[in-house]
Design a protein around this nucleic acid. Structure first.
Length: 722
DNA sequence: ATTTTCGAGATTTTT
DNA sequence: TCTCGAAAAT
């Protein structure tokens, strides 16, 4: 018997509208307004009351985890054993589309999905071949450039059409050469990165009208969660597949846009009604999650954003305790206060550890609090950071399997020296030259030249292993194959030798996952399919069997809620992040503010924000986040004393950053393009203001190299404003 | 020629 | 915690 389709909380009119409005519908749903619930109920309504088959509904969520949650909700509404059809991320949907029709390109169904680590491996190899070293900074900017290059969809044809020639010219710039080589290597392993998943699908739709038609006819209802975080390409995709049936239901909150840096375009959500004039808008502005105290704090902060549609969330929830701001004198103070507070919540307030979350801006900040939690014996689970399938041992194990099934260069390079097989840089280079000349994969080259001097004895053993299974792997159950291969290759032995129990545990966890996969897919379980299915499945979680508090970044916490929330390390430079404080990045600063808004609105009963005095890694003094000063002090209780002088100093620091970097307020510093005079170097122009290193970059007349001049150097004077 | 070891350095956010 | 490089050990 299906649960009655009533949205508890949502008022009758809104509920009716959410469920029954057809065509183009936009739901502007604030934090804690029950939007996921609304989506699930609409989905169930379409199936149960309209009689639409779930196969004809596409529900796009933002993470795999959200997709899982949505499936659970739908199943609980419609009854056990229900097939939920297409509830997936954009990427999951694209894989589905590509697996059916990518053969129309000259790309195999068993394409390899490349994550950032794979991309790095490719780029590192290219740099190696060109006799250069790939710095981390270069890597990040290259990824960026490749992303930009791929904005022109024509590149898809370069990759999918084997006839198309990619020739690296002498006259190409270094960057062009690298990108071309990257495409060549990508094509060689039939790799597809995250951008490609979307782009390939789009091109498939554009090139093959019948494929697009197939999906247009299939999808009668499409709903998208977190629409404000969709990129223009993703929106293009959705626009295409909904053109026939014109049923598109999007839900989002512009105030929770936290992925602009990844190409999200909140404007599309805000201007949805301009793109689809027939669109109806439903506003959900009642918050069912938080106490008024928490909500007021969030509202007060987000009002400081300029680029937003003004809407105030309200709640009828009963009053709770005031938000707490803890200010410490040292990092130890901050950690101590948090652990004490947790103990208090557990002992005096009967909170379960499961009800408590610690949020932070960057993954590395978890370490800051971990030791304290260990010392106090508080169990914790870190979410995100190291995803299960990103772990070294898991990727190694999967690479062994892929070496057998696909034999691609990436898997080969990952595995050849783990464990060590005496294949150092010299031998690998010889192998690479040979493979390059023969236009073969590394594995093939080795197999055909196994007695050559660039094949070590131990590597020959690996070749024997591959030979043994290469032709017969289809006949093995995946789990048994995996077990055999990992044992025979010596990988398990090496791990045991290292005595790394956690890695061994993770591997047996992987085995469990494989067995589970086999059980679900019964006889259909094929290694190729399995390897692809897990490439996107990044948030596999071991079920915690004991209560523990949750540690995660704010990004990871999006869409979740917890009774008690701590936002830690709430310092200027961390949150807002120093990188968003570089010159002219006003949009980035607003995104940081939205990030804080997301953190605040995760909390149901209590919200604590903590920060401390001390020294940053770069030697500057820690000061509280500007966002704390933006909120009126009557909205929170402050624990810990901020001396008048520290307060003043902090404010003037922030003002200084605003003045120099963002070009706001009274400047006793310089701005970009200001002409200055230096007592030694003479006349110059400010070309950069770097808040992180607290320096101006100045181009002095007659000097080739620009000089970094400290903010604190007072004998440089301004000649003329820029 | 390779591998191991050890210390220093560094880290936005993620599908 | 993980990565990277230099120097020592095989």
């Amino acid at each position: 018997m299906a649960e009655d389709l009533i949205l508890t909380g949502l008022n009758g009119k809104q509920l009716e509208a959410v469920k029954t409005t057809e065509g183009y519908v936009r739901v502007v749903a604030g934090a804690g307004s029950g939007k996921t619930k609304a989506l699930a109920h609409r989905y169930a309504y379409i199936v149960e009351y309209l009689g639409i088959d779930p196969a004809n509904i596409l529900c796009v969520t933002f993470t795999n985890k959200a997709a899982g949650e949505m499936k659970k909700r739908v199943v609980s509404l419609l009854g056990q054993g229900y097939d939920t059809g297409l509830i997936a991320t954009y990427h999951g949907f694209c894989v589905r589309v590509l697996r059916e029709d990518i053969h129309r390109f000259q790309y195999p169904r068993q394409f390899i999905i490349l994550d950032e680590e794979d991309q790095k491996a490719i780029l590192r190899e290219i740099y190696d071949e060109m006799g250069m070293r790939l710095e981390n900074r270069t890597f990040n900017s290259l990824l960026n450039r490749i992303g930009l290059y791929k904005m022109n969809l024509e590149y898809v044809h370069l990759l999918t059409d084997v006839e198309s020639r990619i020739v690296v010219e002498e006259t190409d710039t270094l960057e062009q050469q690298v990108i071309k080589r990257y495409l060549l290597k990508q094509r060689k392993v039939f790799g597809i990165d995250f951008d490609d998943l979307i782009n390939f699908t789009l091109v498939l739709f554009y090139d093959f009208a019948e494929v697009l038609q197939k999906w247009q006819q299939k999808l009668h209802y499409v709903q998208v969660d977190e629409f404000q975080d969709s990129s223009s390409r993703q929106i293009e995709l959705i626009d295409l597949v909904t053109r026939r049936n014109r049923n598109l239901f999007v839900v989002g909150d512009p105030d929770q846009t936290i992925y602009e840096w990844r190409g999200a375009k909140p404007e599309y959500f805000v201007d949805f009604n301009l793109h689809y004039p027939s669109c109806e808008t439903i506003i959900l502005d009642e918050n069912y999650r938080s106490t008024p105290e928490i909500l007021d704090l969030g509202n007060a902060l987000i009002k400081h954003n300029q680029l937003r549609v003004d809407k105030d969330m309200f709640t009828r929830n009963p009053s709770g305790i005031k938000v707490i701001h803890y200010h410490g004198k040292s990092e130890a103070d901050e950690v101590k206060w948090i652990t004490d507070r947790i103990s208090y919540l557990v002992e005096e307030r009967q909170a379960s550890l499961n009800d408590i979350a610690i949020l932070y801006r960057s993954n590395f900040l978890s370490r800051y609090i971990e030791q304290g939690l260990i010392n106090e014996g508080i169990d914790y689970t870190i979410y995100g950071g190291f995803k299960f399938f990103q772990r070294k041992e898991i990727k190694d194990a999967l690479a062994y399997l892929r070496l057998i099934s696909a034999g691609d260069d990436l898997a080969f390079l990952r595995v050849i020296n783990t464990p060590r097989r005496g294949m150092g840089p010299k031998k690998l280079k010889a192998l690479r030259d040979f493979a390059e000349a023969e236009r073969q994969s590394y594995l093939e080259t080795m197999q055909e030249n196994r007695d050559s001097e660039f094949v070590s004895v131990k590597a020959r053993n690996l070749l024997d292993l591959v030979d043994k299974y290469q032709t017969s792997y289809h006949e093995w159950p995946i789990s048994e194959l995996a077990k055999e291969v990992l044992e025979e290759s010596g990988y398990m032995a090496a791990l045991r030798q290292d005595g790394d129990q956690e890695r061994l545990d993770n591997l047996s966890e992987l085995m469990n996952a494989i067995v589970a996969y086999e059980r679900i897919n019964e006889d259909e379980a094929d290694l190729d399919d399995y390897l692809q299915s897990i490439a996107l499945y990044t948030d596999y979680e071991k079920e915690a069997n004991h209560a523990s508090i949750k540690l995660m970044t704010i990004h990871t916490a999006k869409g979740l809620e917890f009774p008690y929330v701590f936002l830690i390390s709430f310092n200027e430079g961390i949150l807002p992040n120093a990188r968003s404080l570089e010159h002219g990045k006003k949009r980035a600063l607003e995104e940081e503010r939205r990030l804080v808004y997301v953190a605040i609105t995760r909390a149901m009963k209590e919200f604590c924000m903590t920060e401390t005095e001390g020294v940053n890694p770069n030697g500057s003094s820690k000061i509280p986040s500007r966002f704390i000063f933006e909120i009126k002090e009557n909205l929170y209780d402050r624990i810990g004393v901020i001396e008048e002088s520290f307060y003043e100093e902090s404010l003037s620091q922030i003002e200084y950053i605003n003045a120099t970097v963002l070009g706001e307020g009274p400047a006793d510093g310089f701005r970009i393009d200001d002409q200055v005079a230096h007592p030694v170097f003479g006349k110059g122009v400010i070309t950069e203001v770097n808040a992180r290193s607290r320096t101006y970059v100045v181009k002095f007349e007659g000097m080739e190299i620009q000089k970094p001049i400290s903010f604190d150097f007072k004998r440089m004077t301004k000649l003329k404003g820029g």
